[in-house]
Amino acid sequence: MLSHPDCSCLADAPLKRLSLQTGEGFLKADVFIALHDGKPVICKDYQKFRGSWLSWPAQFLVRREARMLEYLSDWPHSPRLIGVMGKLVLMLEYVPGELLSEYMGSGSPLCFSQLVAAMQSLHKLSITHNDVRGNNIILGQDRVVLIDFAGALRGRGPGRFLLSPLRRADMAHLLKYKRRLAGEEATEEEKRRYRKASWIGMLQRLWKKRLLPHLKRRPSESGDSVSRP
């Protein structure tokens, strides 16, 4: 079961909250650092969708990511789930480090190897991340950490046939950072082995160019209002 910690520390007091992301895209959460029991935690807050039709998919994302992080509680490359507040806020372990998207260091082959090993160990658990990008990878002090598991898939039953192409897609996105971290380009063999399936690219383009713009317009066209707590 998910815990429901005392969240009085988040009620107001601006000095106790440090904004990391203002969710401006479709179903994007506000993300901030807050204090809980005297320690920093990460909060993914979807409460701005309360009262709108987007509240239901937002609750689904919260439950889905919470279950995935519970399953990965012993895996060292994901943040620990602290708890769920109500139905629209996740509290996660704060992981010190630098986002790969903001990384300005010289990099090292060892760092990239650790990232590849982390992804391969995730795949051995029959899980694919499905949103591998610089904003979702933290280069921590003693480990690499993947974040944002709302879109992750655990292959069970009929869904297992999706694992192989989705694993390749995860690795294909990871290879984009080989030059930055390891100082060398991906080999032709790596590009061939981890080439993304064409149907995955087609679905991604369909989502970004057709479905997502339509969903972004829906609240204003239907007259729905999004209330803030």
Rank of each mutant, 00 (worst) to 15 (best):
128 T>M: 04
184 E>A: 01
184 E>N: 01
96 P>T: 01
90 L>Q: 04
155 G>V: 03
111 C>R: 15
217 R>Q: 12
139 L>K: 10
33 I>Q: 06
15 L>M: 11
113 S>I: 10
99 L>Q: 10
189 E>P: 02
85 M>F: 10
35 L>W: 13
38 G>A: 02
219 P>A: 01
27 L>M: 05
41 V>A: 07
177 Y>G: 03
105 G>S: 00
206 L>K: 05
156 R>V: 10
116 V>P: 04
127 I>S: 11
26 F>T: 08
213 P>N: 11
167 R>C: 07
141 Q>Y: 07
58 A>V: 04
165 P>M: 08
4 H>Y: 11
216 K>Y: 06
8 S>G: 13
5 P>Q: 04
102 E>S: 14
2 L>C: 13
16 K>D: 13
73 S>I: 14
148 D>W: 01
105 G>M: 02
226 V>P: 06
184 E>S: 01
94 Y>C: 11
87 K>I: 12
103 Y>M: 08
88 L>T: 03
175 L>W: 05
114 Q>I: 12
50 R>I: 12
96 P>M: 00
105 G>Q: 01
27 L>A: 03
144 V>Y: 00
156 R>S: 07
9 C>P: 09
163 L>F: 07
17 R>G: 01
71 Y>T: 09
79 P>E: 02
146 L>G: 03
181 L>T: 08
97 G>V: 09
9 C>M: 12
1 M>A: 15
193 R>I: 01
123 H>C: 05
27 L>P: 02
50 R>D: 12
46 Y>R: 11
199 W>M: 05
25 G>M: 05
203 L>T: 09
91 M>Y: 03
